[in-house]
Amino acid sequence: MGSLQNGLFGGFNGRVGNLVGYILNGKNVIRTIGHSGKPLSPARKINCDRMKIVNDFLHPVTPFIKLGFKLKVLGTDRNYYNEAVSYNKKHAITGVYPNAEMDYSKAMLSMGTLLKAENPQIQLIGTAIEFTWDVPDDLPWENRKDRAMLQICFPGNTQQTHCLSASHREDGKHTLQIDPSLVNARIEAYISFIKADGSAISDSVHAGSIAKKEKVAEPEIEKQDLIEKETTSAHKTLKALKKPAVNIQLTLATNTRIAAQHSHFLWQNSSNLKLNYTLFPT
């Protein structure tokens, strides 16, 4: 149920039929709700596809763009998220429907008038990403204490890592830890600078990409060849010990379970990598 504000001719809050009223940035807004039963036109399909691409990119980085577009929409009835969507849908998508995709090098996560990062780069060091940027000799004094804002995205993954108050501009670098499980994932990184008091911010700059690392499959070992090599070694060991039965631990470069009958020994494994055999002469 909706409630009137400021009398009969004022705005209202809540729902009345298929209308919803609310206040956005000090203004009364009324919109309709519900789903259209009409089939999507080609133009709407393209628009919906582009909206999904941009939203999939922006939703995980909401904390960053909330600060990054805050000053851009200050004093207007727009909000930071819609501003980010509007820019990136127009400028950061490449290709055509249904093969459109995000162009991460053109994405923008902040907009402002402060000096941008110069020549930013990234590199993976263990489980951390090191950001570096140039510090010009003629860097104005008032910009030396600007704080770096760093954002790391993992396309295809909703996880993200960010730091909204990193090293000073004059430091030229900052290291940001990431989830160890994501060190082999594709990485897209961004950097902005912001005044210590938040009064000004720079446009974001794409700091670089790191390609996804595919795991290399280990070569398979022929099972029969492995059996022959291990049983021959075990036979020699048992003859040297001259005992009727002995436990021998063997280490194999495979995780394949093996159980076999040899002409001289009966032997079985009890694990994958470290194999404990009990051998009995026949």
Rank of each mutant, 00 (worst) to 15 (best):
C48A: 14
Q261C: 13
K212Q: 15
D197Q: 07
S202D: 02
L226V: 02
I23K: 14
L109S: 01
I221E: 07
S233A: 11
T113S: 12
K195T: 07
K229F: 12
L40E: 07
T256P: 03
Q249F: 05
I129S: 04
I178Y: 08
T256S: 03
T251W: 06
T158N: 06
G17W: 13
Q261K: 13
F57W: 12
E130I: 00
D203L: 02
F57N: 02
N18Q: 15
G156C: 09
E230T: 06
S36T: 10
N6L: 13
N47I: 07
Q224H: 15
G126R: 09
P155N: 03
A166N: 03
K72R: 10
P219Q: 03
E228D: 15
Q151P: 01
A148I: 07
F64H: 11
A189L: 08
P219H: 01
E101P: 00
E130Q: 10
R44T: 10
N25K: 14
F131S: 00
Q177S: 15
K38R: 15
K45Y: 04
L74C: 02
I122N: 00
D146W: 07
T251C: 09
R257V: 11
I53G: 01
C153R: 14
R31G: 08
K239I: 15
I125R: 09
F12M: 08
V29K: 04
W133M: 03
S204H: 06
D134N: 10
F69P: 00
